[in-house]
Amino acid sequence: MIKITSNKSTNKNVLINESRKGFAIFMVLGFIAIMVPVVYMFSQIGSSKTKQAMKFHEHLKTELTAISGNTAILSRMRGNVREFAPMPDETSGEDKFSASVFKTGDGFLGQDLHIVLTKSKVNNHAFTLLCDVEQFQPEPSPPVTIISHDYWGTIEPYEISLLADALAMQNFRGVELLRLEQSRDFERAYTEAEYKNIMSDKKSSLPEELSSSWSTVVNALVSEKLPKEES
């Protein structure tokens, strides 16, 4: 009898131990099942925000590096460095930029005409800056007079060492320059009074927020208007 009772109690103890073990495993698995998705969700929220912030940081970085690269190239041209070939990557602080200078011809005053391209790339983001540069002859020694104008930037990943890409960029910019010429022709076609009337009439079709400041803008536009060309 004693033996049987002892066996029964052993069996009961084993059952209790098993159920405790099962309960503990259930709790641990349940805890993991809740925590893993929650932690994953938090990390995803955090990382997507960080990714977005990094995206803009990289955009700004490439833009600023390309501008800084452009300044570096203009400084060299001012120091009478002429007719560059595509150059190896250079650095502006920690960031790399590449540059190309293509000579496009000679100006009326004997100056060299170039297009200068600088590009910076950080991960998937690139920024290319294109401008025209007129480089005069040194008289008698550097600094050489430099006139840079018609800057144009793009985030498209062009290869600036290739003449074909450089020409494609010039064509895109050329479209904008044609539109600029059209707007200048419009100014040249009217007298100051006529131009002022045309621009003032736009007030009625402007959003409400802009109507109070528009007359000041029209005055500024008229004061800088190109003179009418007599036909």
Binding site: D150, Y151, W152, E176, R179, L180, Q182, S183, R184, F186, E187, I198, K202, S205, L206, P207, E209, L210, V217, L221
Partner: peptide, 28 residues
């Protein structure tokens, strides 16, 4: 860069910065 007049303005109702293009020509 194309000679168009561009305006950025703050819309206090929608809390947006809006962009208005005013052609330097006859268009609206």
């Amino acid at each position: 860069s194309c000679g168009e007049i561009i305006c950025y303005y703050h819309d206090k109702n929608t809390l947006e910065i809006k962009r208005c293009v005013i052609p330097n020509g006859v268009a609206a």
